[in-house]
């Protein structure tokens, strides 16, 4: 397409003079060459004394489809996906409100996450947020941020975003690996239980569903984060280290992988973040402190609670006072 546009000028003139007899056209293979290139059926790869990757290719045929993908698919659809997920969460919030502990706080806390688990989680989480924000800046900033900051202002932001993204990406790989190792044991699927959980919609709209240390939804998130995350990481590495003579087609492919997988992670993470913070009472503190309230455990992870209930210990006075009394808070907080 693009090539045609550029060449249209010459197509026009090539058509002007009376064409010589067809049998003689081959005397001018040069004009044939451009025609072939334009129609993409000639050889487009040759040699060049310039030795950079792709220098020997006359016309980069994959560029146009990549442009179309990025501008017509990725930018609008990523934006849309994010908006849609946010809207779904908002609707859910409106319908369901904040889900409170059924019996209020028990005053007994149970150790749910070790320090290292929490450290791994938060490292990964912070990196994830930074990478998402910087990635989205590069993806959508031209549309949304240039009008606000101006081209130069946004350029500075984009430089910072690119820098953070390029250097933190490999760190995220380490963090996610660490997280995976620490969390994988309890995330191994237990088919019967998990299936049941899904069939009952995770209890979102009714009674709680039995679950062990992690419910099927959490496991799903774990595996999505791990598998899609792996795709994000591998593709990210290919893009981040263009020192192995990657061709443009390679880079374009991995860019596609990276963008699609990253957007999946981002939208799914919204659910995780909502569930882990504002959606359920007494949830955020679990990852914050490592301890959960016994009633919280009973509500959400009954089977696990049965296993660990003996390890519970009373919440110290100061802690109890610091947190609002059970039942006092109603679902009046702003959603999301």
């Amino acid at each position: 397409m693009m090539v045609c546009l550029v060449m249209s000028v010459f197509q026009a003139q090539a058509a002007d003079p009376p064409p010589p007899p067809a049998s003689l056209l081959s005397i001018n293979p040069g004009t044939d060459l451009w025609r072939e290139v334009r129609q993409r059926d000639g050889e487009i790869e040759g040699i060049s004394q310039v030795k950079s990757p792709g220098a020997n290719v006359l016309v980069n045929v994959s560029g146009q489809s990549w442009r179309e993908y990025r501008m017509q698919e990725l930018v609008p659809k990523a934006g849309a996906a994010i908006m849609i997920v946010l809207i779904i969460i908002a609707i859910f919030r409106l319908l369901r409100g904040r889900i409170m502990l059924e019996n209020g706080r028990s005053g007994i806390k149970i150790l749910r996450f070790s320090t290292s688990q929490r450290a791994a989680h938060w490292t990964t989480a912070i990196l994830f947020v930074v990478l998402s924000l910087t990635g989205l800046t590069l993806l959508l900033g031209r549309k949304f941020l240039i009008p606000v900051f101006g081209a130069e202002g946004f350029s500075n932001i984009a430089v910072a975003a690119k820098f953070l993204h390029d250097y933190l990406g490999p760190v995220f790989m380490l963090a996610l690996t660490w997280l995976f190792i620490l969390f994988v044991r309890d995330n191994i699927p237990s088919p019967k239980l998990d299936l049941q959980w899904f069939l009952k919609g995770g209890g979102l709209f009714g009674k709680h569903v039995s679950s062990d240390r992690y419910n099927a939804g959490e496991k799903l998130w774990f595996w999505v984060a791990s598998i899609v995350g792996l795709a994000v990481i591998i593709s990210g590495l290919v893009l981040d280290f263009p020192i192995f003579g990657q061709t443009r087609a390679t880079m374009e492919f991995y860019h596609w992988v990276h963008s699609v997988s990253a957007i999946i992670l981002i939208v799914v993470s919204f659910g995780h973040i909502y569930m882990g913070t504002a959606a359920l009472e007494a949830t955020f503190e679990v990852m914050k402190t490592g301890y959960c309230d016994a009633n919280w455990a009973k509500d959400h992870h009954d089977l696990w609670y049965e296993k660990v209930k003996d390890t519970g210990e009373p919440v110290s006075q100061t802690q109890a006072q610091a947190s609002p009394a059970p039942g006092q808070r109603q679902s009046t907080e702003p959603s999301g």
Partner: peptide, 11 residues
């Protein structure tokens, strides 16, 4: 970022 290089038909 290198995006222009990916998109450019002419390298």
């Amino acid at each position: 970022c290198g995006y222009c290089f990916y998109a450019c038909p002419f390298g």
